[in-house]
Amino acid sequence: MWRFALKEGGKWVLALFGALLIAAALSALADPGPYLAAFGNRLMAFLSLDPGRSTISGLPAARELAMHGPATADVVLLGALMALMLGLPLGLLLGTGGMRRATAPVIQIVSAAPVFCACLALAYAAFHLFGIRPDTASRVTTLFLPTVAVGLAGTAAVQMALRRAASLAQDSPFRLGLRRLGLTAMEIERVYVAPQIFAGLLESLGEVMLTLLSAAVVAEWVFQSHGIAELFVKSVALHDWSMAAPILLVFAALTCTAEFLGRVGSRVLMRAAS
């Protein structure tokens, strides 16, 4: 187990380093001097935890991140919570047994809606049902609606990961083998199949995180919630690379970390099951 965790830890560090190189390469564009020297400087600065200074606002990028981070953290964390609360039961209900094949086309249709379309549909419903205009700044528009949009995208990702894991577990010969050996179908599902399905979900944690972050970018933009995702879009539009690069690094680090934790968690779960 420790060997596995160390190996995965090594992969995680390498992935973070890769993301750091990309961020440094992007951030170096903001420096007027020779590119390679700028790249080296930025890389060293990132390694000493100094992400630089925004060229537009003039503020340290770390301060901008600290100012805008909490809004995004709220949206992503609450969205993740909603994704788990909705996605887990939905995924288990629709992704296992005979329901999996029957619901497959429906799932394709529902998940075909891009996040920005879902955001606009939410805003339309909020306006017509509750009279809340999306362009008015309130907790509902800057927190609740983006969270629901991110949560819905996350739900789709979670239940998709569960379906994938369930389809793999469904074909395992041990289901029939253990049944014939005398265990009940329910016991096999509970003790052996369920951990595999959850382990599959954990393996896909990186993908779920990517979905949540992508959705956060769009949701913050539509609902004008001033988080780092929205800040990234603005920075890129204004070519503020010294601000866009650390945000990109944060997002990549979150994805790598989720992937690492998911892999280790999956292994721990399977160990616990045995």
Partner: peptide, 22 residues
């Protein structure tokens, strides 16, 4: 060779569960 046990879980634990059930 029919692989009747879950390959990812300890064989003894699965067999003990089968005996316990019987």
């Amino acid at each position: 060779a029919q692989r009747p046990l879950d390959p990812l879980v300890g064989a003894a634990s699965q067999l003990a569960r089968v005996i316990a059930r019987r």
